[in-house]
Protein backbone atom coordinates (compact mmCIF):
# COMPACT_ATOMS: atom_id res chain seq x y z
CA UNK A 1 0.00 0.00 0.00
CA UNK A 2 2.82 2.36 0.92
CA UNK A 3 4.34 1.86 -2.51
CA UNK A 4 1.14 3.10 -4.09
CA UNK A 5 1.14 6.12 -1.80
CA UNK A 6 4.48 7.47 -2.87
CA UNK A 7 4.54 6.43 -6.49
CA UNK A 8 2.74 8.82 -8.81
CA UNK A 9 0.15 7.55 -11.29
CA UNK A 10 2.48 8.37 -14.19
CA UNK A 11 5.25 6.29 -12.64
CA UNK A 12 2.88 3.44 -11.95
CA UNK A 13 1.61 3.35 -15.55
CA UNK A 14 5.16 3.21 -16.92
CA UNK A 15 6.08 0.47 -14.47
CA UNK A 16 3.06 -1.52 -15.58
CA UNK A 17 4.37 -1.36 -19.16
CA UNK A 18 7.94 -2.14 -18.14
CA UNK A 19 7.17 -5.15 -15.92
CA UNK A 20 5.69 -7.43 -18.67
CA UNK A 21 8.47 -6.43 -21.08
CA UNK A 22 11.15 -7.53 -18.64
CA UNK A 23 9.24 -10.60 -17.57
CA UNK A 24 9.10 -11.66 -21.23
CA UNK A 25 12.81 -11.06 -21.64
CA UNK A 26 13.55 -13.12 -18.54
CA UNK A 27 11.30 -15.99 -19.57
CA UNK A 28 11.94 -16.11 -23.30
CA UNK A 29 15.21 -14.29 -23.67
CA UNK A 30 18.52 -15.93 -24.08
CA UNK A 31 22.16 -15.08 -24.49
CA UNK A 32 22.82 -11.44 -25.20
CA UNK A 33 19.28 -10.25 -24.41
CA UNK A 34 19.31 -11.92 -21.00
CA UNK A 35 22.73 -10.56 -20.15
CA UNK A 36 21.66 -7.09 -21.26
CA UNK A 37 18.50 -7.31 -19.15
CA UNK A 38 20.37 -8.41 -16.04
CA UNK A 39 23.02 -5.71 -16.50
CA UNK A 40 20.12 -3.32 -16.95
CA UNK A 41 18.74 -4.45 -13.58
CA UNK A 42 22.18 -4.05 -12.04
CA UNK A 43 22.52 -0.46 -13.23
CA UNK A 44 18.88 0.20 -12.24
CA UNK A 45 19.58 -0.89 -8.63
CA UNK A 46 22.68 1.31 -8.60
CA UNK A 47 20.71 4.21 -9.99
CA UNK A 48 18.09 3.77 -7.27
CA UNK A 49 20.84 3.57 -4.63
CA UNK A 50 22.70 6.60 -6.01
CA UNK A 51 19.48 8.58 -5.94
CA UNK A 52 19.11 8.06 -2.19
CA UNK A 53 22.11 10.34 -1.73
CA UNK A 54 20.84 12.73 -4.39
CA UNK A 55 17.50 12.99 -2.59
CA UNK A 56 19.27 14.94 0.13
CA UNK A 57 20.58 17.34 -2.51
CA UNK A 58 24.09 15.95 -2.92
CA UNK A 59 25.55 14.82 -6.23
CA UNK A 60 28.10 12.07 -5.71
CA UNK A 61 30.65 11.32 -8.40
CA UNK A 62 32.36 8.59 -6.44
CA UNK A 63 29.88 5.83 -5.70
CA UNK A 64 32.06 3.38 -7.64
CA UNK A 65 34.17 3.30 -4.47
CA UNK A 66 31.37 1.61 -2.52
CA UNK A 67 30.74 -0.78 -5.40
CA UNK A 68 34.40 -1.83 -5.42
CA UNK A 69 34.58 -2.20 -1.63
CA UNK A 70 31.50 -4.46 -1.62
CA UNK A 71 33.00 -6.57 -4.41
CA UNK A 72 36.45 -6.94 -2.85
CA UNK A 73 35.28 -7.58 0.71
CA UNK A 74 32.76 -10.19 -0.47
CA UNK A 75 35.34 -12.06 -2.56
CA UNK A 76 38.01 -11.98 0.15
CA UNK A 77 35.44 -13.17 2.73
CA UNK A 78 34.37 -15.94 0.35
CA UNK A 79 37.96 -17.04 -0.26
CA UNK A 80 38.62 -17.15 3.47
CA UNK A 81 35.87 -19.72 3.88
CA UNK A 82 32.79 -17.67 4.69
CA UNK A 83 29.57 -18.78 3.01
CA UNK A 84 29.34 -16.93 -0.31
CA UNK A 85 25.78 -15.67 0.27
CA UNK A 86 26.82 -14.33 3.66
CA UNK A 87 29.91 -12.79 2.08
CA UNK A 88 27.68 -10.68 -0.19
CA UNK A 89 26.11 -9.11 2.89
CA UNK A 90 29.52 -8.67 4.55
CA UNK A 91 30.67 -6.84 1.42
CA UNK A 92 27.55 -4.65 1.48
CA UNK A 93 28.06 -3.93 5.17
CA UNK A 94 31.69 -2.94 4.61
CA UNK A 95 30.60 -0.53 1.88
CA UNK A 96 27.88 0.82 4.20
CA UNK A 97 30.41 1.40 6.99
CA UNK A 98 32.75 3.17 4.56
CA UNK A 99 29.80 5.25 3.35
CA UNK A 100 28.97 6.21 6.94
CA UNK A 101 32.60 7.14 7.63
CA UNK A 102 32.86 9.31 4.53
CA UNK A 103 29.53 10.91 5.31
CA UNK A 104 30.71 11.71 8.85
CA UNK A 105 33.95 13.13 7.47
CA UNK A 106 32.32 15.31 4.82
CA UNK A 107 29.08 16.25 6.56
CA UNK A 108 29.84 19.95 6.30
CA UNK A 109 30.38 19.75 2.56
CA UNK A 110 27.68 20.26 0.00
CA UNK A 111 27.35 21.08 -3.69
CA UNK A 112 30.59 21.16 -5.67
CA UNK A 113 32.66 20.52 -2.53
CA UNK A 114 30.79 17.29 -1.82
CA UNK A 115 31.01 16.17 -5.47
CA UNK A 116 34.80 16.66 -5.49
CA UNK A 117 35.23 14.98 -2.11
CA UNK A 118 33.21 12.02 -3.39
CA UNK A 119 35.77 11.45 -6.16
CA UNK A 120 38.50 11.43 -3.51
CA UNK A 121 36.73 8.89 -1.31
CA UNK A 122 36.21 6.58 -4.29
CA UNK A 123 39.92 6.64 -5.10
CA UNK A 124 41.18 5.75 -1.61
CA UNK A 125 39.92 2.12 -1.63
CA UNK A 126 41.12 1.73 -5.22
CA UNK A 127 44.66 2.72 -4.26
CA UNK A 128 44.49 0.36 -1.28
CA UNK A 129 43.31 -2.50 -3.53
CA UNK A 130 46.14 -1.82 -5.97
CA UNK A 131 48.74 -2.21 -3.27
CA UNK A 132 47.66 -5.08 -1.04
CA UNK A 133 48.56 -8.71 -1.55
CA UNK A 134 45.23 -9.90 -0.13
CA UNK A 135 43.45 -8.09 -2.97
CA UNK A 136 45.82 -9.49 -5.56
CA UNK A 137 47.24 -5.98 -6.07
CA UNK A 138 46.99 -4.65 -9.65
CA UNK A 139 46.18 -8.03 -11.22
CA UNK A 140 43.30 -8.72 -8.86
CA UNK A 141 41.66 -12.08 -8.14
CA UNK A 142 40.53 -14.55 -10.78
CA UNK A 143 38.54 -17.78 -10.93
CA UNK A 144 35.95 -16.66 -8.40
CA UNK A 145 33.33 -19.35 -7.99
CA UNK A 146 29.81 -18.23 -8.90
CA UNK A 147 27.45 -17.35 -6.07
CA UNK A 148 25.40 -20.46 -6.64
CA UNK A 149 26.91 -23.39 -8.44
CA UNK A 150 25.70 -22.50 -11.89
CA UNK A 151 26.57 -25.28 -14.26
CA UNK A 152 25.59 -23.56 -17.46
CA UNK A 153 26.59 -20.00 -18.24
CA UNK A 154 23.23 -19.47 -19.92
CA UNK A 155 21.18 -20.19 -16.87
CA UNK A 156 18.86 -17.28 -16.12
CA UNK A 157 19.42 -17.68 -12.35
CA UNK A 158 21.74 -14.70 -12.10
CA UNK A 159 19.26 -12.58 -14.06
CA UNK A 160 16.55 -13.58 -11.63
CA UNK A 161 18.83 -12.69 -8.74
CA UNK A 162 19.35 -9.19 -10.15
CA UNK A 163 15.63 -8.75 -10.89
CA UNK A 164 14.62 -10.11 -7.48
CA UNK A 165 17.19 -7.90 -5.73
CA UNK A 166 15.73 -4.85 -7.43
CA UNK A 167 12.24 -5.81 -6.35
CA UNK A 168 13.26 -6.63 -2.77
CA UNK A 169 15.20 -3.36 -2.38
CA UNK A 170 12.23 -1.43 -3.71
CA UNK A 171 9.82 -3.21 -1.37
CA UNK A 172 12.05 -2.80 1.70
CA UNK A 173 12.51 0.87 0.92
CA UNK A 174 8.83 1.55 0.41
CA UNK A 175 7.94 -0.37 3.55
CA UNK A 176 9.92 2.12 5.62
CA UNK A 177 9.72 5.31 3.59
CA UNK A 178 6.40 7.07 3.83
CA UNK A 179 5.24 10.40 2.50
CA UNK A 180 6.54 12.20 5.58
CA UNK A 181 10.15 11.16 4.92
CA UNK A 182 9.68 12.08 1.26
CA UNK A 183 8.52 15.54 2.33
CA UNK A 184 11.46 16.00 4.71
CA UNK A 185 13.93 14.94 2.02
CA UNK A 186 12.40 17.39 -0.44
CA UNK A 187 12.85 20.13 2.19
CA UNK A 188 16.51 19.20 2.81
CA UNK A 189 17.17 19.08 -0.93
CA UNK A 190 15.65 22.47 -1.64
CA UNK A 191 16.87 24.52 1.29
CA UNK A 192 19.02 22.92 3.95
CA UNK A 193 19.20 25.98 6.18
CA UNK A 194 15.43 26.46 6.16
CA UNK A 195 14.92 22.75 6.86
CA UNK A 196 17.24 22.92 9.87
CA UNK A 197 15.48 26.03 11.15
CA UNK A 198 12.25 24.01 11.03
CA UNK A 199 13.68 21.26 13.21
CA UNK A 200 14.87 18.74 10.60
CA UNK A 201 18.15 17.03 11.49
CA UNK A 202 19.54 17.42 7.97
CA UNK A 203 22.97 15.96 8.71
CA UNK A 204 21.43 12.82 10.21
CA UNK A 205 19.22 12.29 7.16
CA UNK A 206 22.19 12.80 4.85
CA UNK A 207 24.21 10.25 6.79
CA UNK A 208 21.42 7.67 6.91
CA UNK A 209 20.78 8.04 3.18
CA UNK A 210 24.49 7.76 2.41
CA UNK A 211 24.74 4.63 4.55
CA UNK A 212 21.84 2.90 2.81
CA UNK A 213 23.03 4.10 -0.59
CA UNK A 214 26.57 2.78 -0.09
CA UNK A 215 25.20 -0.48 1.34
CA UNK A 216 23.19 -0.99 -1.86
CA UNK A 217 26.27 -0.27 -4.00
CA UNK A 218 28.33 -2.71 -1.96
CA UNK A 219 25.62 -5.35 -2.26
CA UNK A 220 25.44 -5.01 -6.04
CA UNK A 221 29.24 -4.89 -6.32
CA UNK A 222 29.43 -8.20 -4.44
CA UNK A 223 26.80 -9.82 -6.66
CA UNK A 224 28.54 -8.49 -9.76
CA UNK A 225 31.95 -9.92 -8.90
CA UNK A 226 30.47 -13.37 -8.22
CA UNK A 227 28.74 -13.03 -11.54
CA UNK A 228 31.74 -12.15 -13.71
CA UNK A 229 34.16 -14.39 -11.80
CA UNK A 230 37.14 -12.05 -11.49
CA UNK A 231 38.02 -8.74 -9.92
CA UNK A 232 40.72 -6.12 -10.30
CA UNK A 233 40.95 -2.47 -9.22
CA UNK A 234 40.26 -1.04 -12.67
CA UNK A 235 37.03 -2.96 -13.17
CA UNK A 236 35.73 -2.88 -9.59
CA UNK A 237 36.30 0.87 -9.18
CA UNK A 238 35.43 1.70 -12.78
CA UNK A 239 34.14 5.26 -13.10
CA UNK A 240 31.27 3.78 -15.13
CA UNK A 241 29.69 2.56 -11.88
CA UNK A 242 29.59 6.16 -10.69
CA UNK A 243 28.44 7.81 -13.88
CA UNK A 244 25.91 5.33 -15.36
CA UNK A 245 23.68 5.35 -12.22
CA UNK A 246 23.99 9.14 -12.03
CA UNK A 247 22.94 9.65 -15.64
CA UNK A 248 20.15 7.07 -15.29
CA UNK A 249 18.79 8.91 -12.26
CA UNK A 250 19.03 12.35 -13.86
CA UNK A 251 17.39 11.09 -17.05
CA UNK A 252 14.67 9.18 -15.21
CA UNK A 253 13.95 11.91 -12.67
CA UNK A 254 15.93 12.11 -9.49
CA UNK A 255 13.09 13.50 -7.40
CA UNK A 256 10.98 10.42 -7.97
CA UNK A 257 11.16 6.88 -6.64
CA UNK A 258 10.82 4.87 -9.83
CA UNK A 259 12.38 7.47 -12.15
CA UNK A 260 16.03 6.44 -11.64
CA UNK A 261 15.15 2.77 -12.16
CA UNK A 262 13.26 3.37 -15.40
CA UNK A 263 15.84 5.91 -16.60
CA UNK A 264 18.72 3.51 -16.01
CA UNK A 265 16.90 0.63 -17.73
CA UNK A 266 16.03 2.72 -20.79
CA UNK A 267 19.58 4.01 -21.14
CA UNK A 268 21.28 0.69 -20.57
CA UNK A 269 19.04 -1.20 -22.98
CA UNK A 270 19.36 1.57 -25.60
CA UNK A 271 23.11 1.45 -25.17
CA UNK A 272 23.10 -2.35 -25.58
CA UNK A 273 20.86 -2.20 -28.67
CA UNK A 274 22.94 0.53 -30.31
CA UNK A 275 26.14 -1.37 -29.51
CA UNK A 276 24.95 -4.19 -31.79
CA UNK A 277 24.89 -1.74 -34.70
CA UNK A 278 27.79 0.49 -33.64
CA UNK A 279 30.25 -1.55 -31.60
CA UNK A 280 32.35 1.58 -31.14
CA UNK A 281 31.01 4.81 -29.72
CA UNK A 282 27.67 3.44 -28.52
CA UNK A 283 28.28 4.93 -25.07
CA UNK A 284 27.43 8.25 -26.71
CA UNK A 285 23.85 7.40 -25.70
CA UNK A 286 24.76 8.50 -22.16
CA UNK A 287 26.17 11.79 -23.42
CA UNK A 288 23.03 12.29 -25.47
CA UNK A 289 20.88 11.55 -22.42
CA UNK A 290 22.71 14.24 -20.44
CA UNK A 291 22.16 16.74 -23.26
CA UNK A 292 18.46 15.89 -23.61
CA UNK A 293 17.95 16.04 -19.85
CA UNK A 294 19.65 19.39 -19.48
CA UNK A 295 18.08 21.01 -22.54
CA UNK A 296 14.58 19.56 -22.68
CA UNK A 297 13.82 17.32 -19.73
CA UNK A 298 14.76 19.32 -16.66
CA UNK A 299 13.78 17.11 -13.78
CA UNK A 300 13.92 13.97 -15.95
CA UNK A 301 11.19 11.81 -17.45
CA UNK A 302 9.36 11.61 -14.16
CA UNK A 303 9.54 15.23 -13.18
CA UNK A 304 7.48 15.51 -10.04
CA UNK A 305 4.51 17.37 -11.45
CA UNK A 306 2.20 16.39 -8.68
CA UNK A 307 2.42 17.69 -5.14
CA UNK A 308 3.67 15.11 -2.65
CA UNK A 309 0.69 15.31 -0.34
Amino acid sequence: MKLLQIVTKQELKSSLIAIPVFTLILINGSGYLLTAASYGFLIAILSFGWNLTALTGEISLGHAGFFGIGAYVAVISGISGINSVLSVFIGALAAGVYGAITSLSFYRLSGVGFALASIAFSQIPKIVAENLSITGAGSGIVNIKPLFIIKSINTPLREYIMGASLLIILLIFTAFAGKKIWLKLSAIRQNRIAAEALGIATIRYKQINMLISSFIFGFVGALWTYWIGYINPDTAFDLYFSTAPLIGALFGGRNSLIGPIIGALILYLSDSAISMIFPVGHKAVYGLAILVTIMALRGGIFKAKKAII
Partner: peptide, 30 residues
Protein backbone atom coordinates in the same frame (compact mmCIF):
# COMPACT_ATOMS: atom_id res chain seq x y z
CA UNK B 1 19.93 24.69 14.51
CA UNK B 2 17.38 21.85 14.42
CA UNK B 3 17.89 21.22 18.12
CA UNK B 4 17.32 24.90 18.89
CA UNK B 5 14.09 24.68 16.95
CA UNK B 6 13.12 21.59 18.95
CA UNK B 7 13.95 23.53 22.13
CA UNK B 8 11.43 26.20 21.11
CA UNK B 9 13.18 28.79 18.95
CA UNK B 10 11.49 29.49 15.62
CA UNK B 11 12.78 31.93 13.05
CA UNK B 12 12.14 33.64 9.76
CA UNK B 13 14.83 34.93 7.41
CA UNK B 14 15.29 38.42 5.99
CA UNK B 15 15.15 36.96 2.48
CA UNK B 16 12.49 34.23 2.69
CA UNK B 17 13.89 30.71 2.71
CA UNK B 18 11.09 28.47 1.52
CA UNK B 19 10.72 25.16 -0.24
CA UNK B 20 9.94 26.74 -3.59
CA UNK B 21 8.83 23.62 -5.43
CA UNK B 22 6.43 22.57 -2.68
CA UNK B 23 2.91 23.82 -2.19
CA UNK B 24 1.99 26.15 0.65
CA UNK B 25 0.38 23.26 2.49
CA UNK B 26 3.54 21.17 2.15
CA UNK B 27 5.74 24.02 3.36
CA UNK B 28 3.69 24.42 6.51
CA UNK B 29 3.26 20.65 6.95
CA UNK B 30 7.06 20.37 7.33
Amino acid sequence: PHKRCMAGIGRTFQIPRLFDENSLLENVAI
